[in-house]
């Protein structure tokens, strides 16, 4: 498996006059092409810092990040981010279609190709009929689907997701989890999924990276050996799922206690 994203000794210290906070101490991991990796950690573990560094929205203070072999110093072309705050990440002044299309237009994709990719992406998230609506006319779950459609239409090497389902209700959340699993399966995209939800990380990922308490290091890199075909009922009820869940849970508890 070829490495698509490689994070090497990433560190981030916030400095302001009279105050220094070491948020991330040493993060090193690789993600192979087509992998689905979840990052989970206790709250305040620097998940957002990690994600913003990888997305190129914020420079690290040490170490390096490479996407497709190129150092990340600004938002890279091969990355798309789905933010937690879907309601604010979508542009309310544009229709759903235009929201999905705009990054492609900015990228310089010609109009006919753009149209086809928008249609495909909206179809993939089940929103073919809502293209002409404005995001604020849709439910929260549908809005996050629009943000996902926008990200997959961009055809990134890596799809970054920052606690994307943290703000939707439990039923919608289960639906979106299955949707993202299905999209990953069908489109062969690479997903880095940051979450604080232990069950979600085990259910979705092929690998779970457990972060230590801040200043952050990797506490464990856990392969999730559940079968590829997963569903909310049988997977979550399987003994293997329960065992893995318990394992991640214990790791998080140890992280909270300060182990690194």
């Amino acid at each position: 498996m070829t490495t698509v994203l490689s994070v090497d000794a990433l560190a981030k210290t916030y400095r302001s006059p009279g105050r220094t906070v070491e948020a991330v101490r040493d993060l090193t991991f690789d993600i192979g092409r087509g992998e689905f990796v979840c990052v989970v950690g206790p709250s305040g573990a620097g998940k957002t810092t990690l994600l913003r560094c990888i997305a190129g929205l914020m420079p690290g203070t040490g170490g390096s990040i490479h996407l497709d072999g190129t150092a990340v110093t600004a938002p890279p072309a091969g990355m798309a981010v789905v933010f937690q705050e879907y309601g604010r990440s979508l542009f309310p002044w544009l229709t759903v279609r235009r929201n999905v299309e705009l990054p492609l237009a900015e990228k310089g994709v010609p109009r006919p190709a753009r149209r086809a990719r928008v249609d495909e992406a909206l179809d993939a998230v089940g929103l073919s009929d809502s293209g002409n609506a404005h995001p604020w006319q849709l439910s929260g779950g549908m809005q996050q689907r629009v943000a996902i459609a926008r990200a997959i239409a961009y055809e990134p090497s890596v799809l970054l997701m920052d606690e994307p389902f943290a703000a939707v209700d439990a039923q919608t959340r289960a639906e979106l989890e299955d949707l993202i699993r299905a999209l990953w399966h069908r489109l062969g995209i690479t997903v880095l999924f940051v979450t604080h939800d232990i069950d979600e990380s085990v259910y979705l990922g092929q690998r779970v990276l457990v972060l230590s308490r801040s200043p952050t290091e990797i506490l464990a890199d856990l392969p999730i050996d559940l079968p590829a075909a997963r569903d909310q009922l049988t997977t979550r009820a399987s003994p293997r799922f329960t065992a893995l869940r318990a394992q991640v849970y214990t790791l998080i508890q140890r992280a909270k206690a300060g182990e690194r």
């Binding site: 997305a55 190129g56 929205l57 938002p75 072309a77 990355m79 798309a80 981010v81 933010f83 705050e85 604010r88 990440s89 542009f91 705009l102 990054p103 900015e106 990228k107 961009y154």
Partner: peptide, 18 residues
């Protein structure tokens, strides 16, 4: 301008003019 909107535009590499 909403910071999340700004981050969105930055992460999709919108040009300054865009």
């Amino acid at each position: 301008v909403d910071p999340v909107v700004r981050d969105t535009a930055r992460s999709y590499r919108f040009s300054r003019w865009g």
